[in-house]
Structure formats: C-alpha cells, structure tokens
Design a protein around this nucleic acid. Sequence first.
DNA 1: GATATACCGTCCGACACAGACGGTCCGTGT
DNA 2: ACACGGACCGTCTGTGTCGGACGGTATATC
Lengths: 185, 185
Amino acid sequence: MQDIQLTPTSYIVLGLLDRAREATPYELNRLVDISVGNFWSLPRSQLYAEPARLARAGYLSEEQEQSGRRRKRYALTARGSDALRSWTEEPTYEYPELRDPSLLKVFFGADSQAMAEAQLSTLRPLLARFEEMRAKDTGEGPDGPRQTLQVGIDHVETSIRAWERIAGESSDIVETAIEQAPALL
Amino acid sequence: MQDIQLTPTSYIVLGLLDRAREATPYELNRLVDISVGNFWSLPRSQLYAEPARLARAGYLSEEQEQSGRRRKRYALTARGSDALRSWTEEPTYEYPELRDPSLLKVFFGADSQAMAEAQLSTLRPLLARFEEMRAKDTGEGPDGPRQTLQVGIDHVETSIRAWERIAGESSDIVETAIEQAPALL
DNA sequence: GATATACCGTCCGACACAGACGGTCCGTGT
DNA sequence: ACACGGACCGTCTGTGTCGGACGGTATATC
C-alpha cells in the first residue's frame, strides 16, 4: 500500500465507481465515453492503468475473475469514497483551460476562414449530439451530469458563434473587394 | 538528427520563434505567459526541454553563449519554418476540449452553489484582465492573437453566465423554500 | 467446426508535468 | 571594494499521460 498522488484521472475513476458500485476497466471505458469523456477525455489505456494504481494504494478493491478473460472488477473502499467526498466538497479556484488545436493554429497565423469552415463542420454535429443527449434526459438522477452537459452546450454554441463571426469578418473583406472591383475595371 | 513527433508544444515553440526570430528558453517562457499561455498552458520546464529536442531534430538552430549563464539561443531553421507553415496551412477537425476541474467536481456531485461562488471569484478578474488586454491592442500586427483573445473572452463570459445561472437555480430552491415557509408555520 | 467480427486486456516508447534545487546577476548599503 | 538579498535563470528527476500496436477471447453466422 504505497501512497500516490490523486490526479483528475484518479477522481474520474473514483467518481464513476461511486455511481456504478463496481466495474471492470472496460466498463469504465464505456462509462467515460457516454459521460465525462465529452469534456475530459482520457485514453483507453489509462482506464486500465489507473484503477490498478488506485487499488495498490488502497482506494479500490480488486477482484480478478477466474474465467478465460480473467478481467478485474474494481470497487470503492472506504478510503476511496472518503477521498472522493473530500475532493468534491472542496471548491476549486483553478482556471478552466480551453485546449483547442484550431485556436492554436489561428493564433500562429492559420487562415481563419478555412479554419472556421473546418471547425463549424465538426462543431455543429457535436452540438446536435449534445442536444439530443439533453432531450433524452429524464430529469432523474443527480444534477451534476445535467448541469455539466448544459455548460458544455453553452460552450459549443459560443464556439460556433465565434467561428461564424470570424468567417463573416473574412468574407466582409472579400465582399468589399468585390464591390470595389467595378471601379477597377 | 533523429526524427521526433511534433506536438502542440512543439508548434508553440516554433510559432513563437517565428515571431521573435530568436530567443532563449527564458524569453520563450515570458512570451508564453503574455500570449498563448492564456489558453494553452505549459510548464516552465517544458520550454527548456522542447527547444533542445527540436534542435536535435533539426528544426531549430542552437547557439550557446560563452558567458557565465551559458544560456542557449534558438532560432528557426528552414526545416523548422517549413514544419510550422505546413501545420498552420492544414485546417484541423479536432475537437476543442474544455478541461475544467470545477466542472469535473460538479459532474461528480460537488455542491454547485459553492462551486459557482468560487469560480465566479476567479473568472471575473480573468475576464477583466482579458478585456484590458483587448483594450490595449493597437490593431497592428497579425490577426491571430486578436481573434484568439476575443474567442477566449467569449468563453470566459459563457462560463460566467453559466455559473450565474447555476447559482440562481440553487437560490431559487432556497427562495421557494422560504416562500413556502409561512404555510408551514 | 471454420471463419468473421466484435469484444477485451496489456504493454511500450515517447511526451508532459510539477516542483525542487542550485547557480548567476544586479542593486543597495556599508 | 565588498557583502548580501532578491530577482533572474537553468537543469534534473520522478511520476503521470498519451496513443497505438499487438494479441487474446467470446459470439454470431454459415
């Protein structure tokens, strides 16, 4: 039982197991895909490594199946649910970070018109997917996921408006050029 | 000259050096702080490691001072500026990711009222800082940083509105309870 | 019972992160 | 001139994260 540092990844695993009571890494993967993965992604391999790490440190119990696949089922220990609770109880003053590769490119000189087009073509379907999720919600269960989803929708809408504005700025220039073109003839 | 994988970190270094012509890691750190670091942070140590890595792979030239501090000055090579250009030229369809620790906590059951308070107390000053940056802008230079800053402002405003709404939801419940209280007496 | 396909688990090399540690420079006081 | 404090600057290390290759296991179909 060595002591480890609890990272956001750790709390995702702890939080998911708190809801699911117990799960295999594979099930955790599926849970992430349909929930928190929409705004905080992690690679599949992490969801095999992290529970093992947490189990070694006493935050999870680990039980291995004897069948062919020999998969491991994890569940919260008292220590694990204490850690989760004290994490959620403590408000955080950390900044959100918008890691957006397309913004990085624009910052360093990408053609913002082309980028806007590309991003809008991925963001609009994303918004549709989120809205569908919201529509399917039954209103039962904890508020957290619902509130989070709504904030996610807000931000996608903001991104869409931003790219539309940027696309508009560029095409204004084009239109201006076209309007002025006759004078040049 | 080994070949390496170019990551977002790499392009930040390349992009910064494209603007600055040449810089030491320390200067890169300062540049990040006042520019791209506002939406894509990297630790100080990365900005020492990454240029060295890029130099080894031929993307940067490296020249070590002979004085006491023996610091290294880096500049783009032809290979480096080619790499940067072909990166910016290619629009990306990747999703932006909003890595927000506070949202993660809310998702897993944090008290959203308390979280809203905490986040608003950090986001409002952040917004003020961004708006100040925008006000100071002279309108000269490339569009990228300006557009990026505006998008950043949009998102901070969205976050603020979201937390205000969430705080409002909670207090609605409280108010409802208070309104109904007389009937209970 | 052979084959296709989806399901599931592990491993590895490269990259990112935080922060401790220590050296260098410069301003100020004596 | 010299000492000293604080700002400036660079490196190193252990741990965490990443993406993806690889390979094994169950299930459906014929």
